[in-house]
Simulated scan of single mutants.
Amino acid sequence: MARMCKPLRPCGASPAAVCRRDSRHELYVCGVGRSTQGPVFSQEPPRIVHFTNSTGVTVNCVADGTPTPAVTWTMQDGRPVEEVMGLREVLTNGSLVFPPFPANQYDTQLHANTYICRATSAGGTVLARPSQIRAVVVGDYEVQVYDQLVMAGNTAVLRCAVPSYVREYVTVTSWVHDDSFNIYPSLHGGECDIVSLEYADDTLICL
């Protein structure tokens, strides 16, 4: 004869709900089993991860719980992290891998972004602290300065354009005029401010 289940709490509140027999009232009582334990990080990813394109890096994220939680990664905006062939991998154990890559395959969306590890099980979901991933490309790079057309008597602002993959690690130290005269830049972004421009045609080099 089938017996009805009288829950201590709504059984639907957790997939891990179990029933025990109450012989006194000849029914089964439902509740959440003690064997269920929400996910807890045993190895949380670091806040900042720097690596070079010649070495690559593996970012580990490990969570424990009962049942065993599934570990996944998302971007800061909530989009799931997917594999990008040769540039980004998500292993079944929850590790996020950035293999070594050639300089011309640097991608700011992959190599200069914020990632979040999450662990999910029947016991709930927990989010790790955000991890800022920064790849540094090792090798030669060139800076550029674009021509500015300025009327005489006005102020010219010259900017030194540094490639994005090394911009965070490069400081503009000076601008050189005629290979001998150094102009030291402003404190804001290495700009060269020329006030009351008098030259009709002149050249400056960014260092």
Rank of each mutant, 00 (worst) to 15 (best):
S121G: 07
I116D: 00
L204C: 10
C19V: 01
P10I: 04
M85F: 12
L96G: 00
L187R: 08
T114D: 08
T72W: 04
S14E: 07
P80F: 07
V32S: 01
S54G: 11
L158H: 11
E198A: 15
S196K: 14
I48D: 13
N53V: 09
C30P: 02
S23G: 07
Y106I: 09
L187F: 12
T173P: 00
I205V: 12
L96Y: 00
A152W: 11
Y106T: 14
G65E: 00
Q43F: 04
A13M: 15
V172S: 05
D140M: 05
V195R: 13
G33Q: 05
T58H: 10
G38H: 09
V57W: 03
G94E: 02
A135Q: 09
M4N: 15
C5T: 07
Y28E: 11
H188W: 12
Y106Q: 05
E198S: 13
N93H: 15
V57M: 04
F181R: 15
L204W: 08
V126W: 02
L158E: 06
F98C: 10
Q148G: 10
D178Q: 12
A135T: 15
P69N: 11
Y146I: 12
G86K: 11
Y169C: 11
P45K: 08
V136T: 14
W175N: 01
I133Q: 06
T36V: 12
V126P: 00
G38W: 03
H50Y: 15
Y28D: 12
I48A: 03
A16R: 02
V62F: 09
Y106G: 02
A119D: 00
Y115S: 02
T55E: 15
R129W: 02
I183E: 12
C117F: 09
M1H: 12
W175K: 03
A63H: 00
R21L: 06
A156W: 01
A128D: 04
A13G: 07
A200C: 14
P67H: 06
A135K: 04
Q37N: 12
L87P: 00
P102M: 03
A2P: 10
V172T: 13
Y115K: 06
T125R: 08
E191F: 05
V195T: 15
V40E: 01
V84P: 00
F181A: 14
T171L: 12
T74N: 13
N93S: 11
W73H: 04
A200F: 13
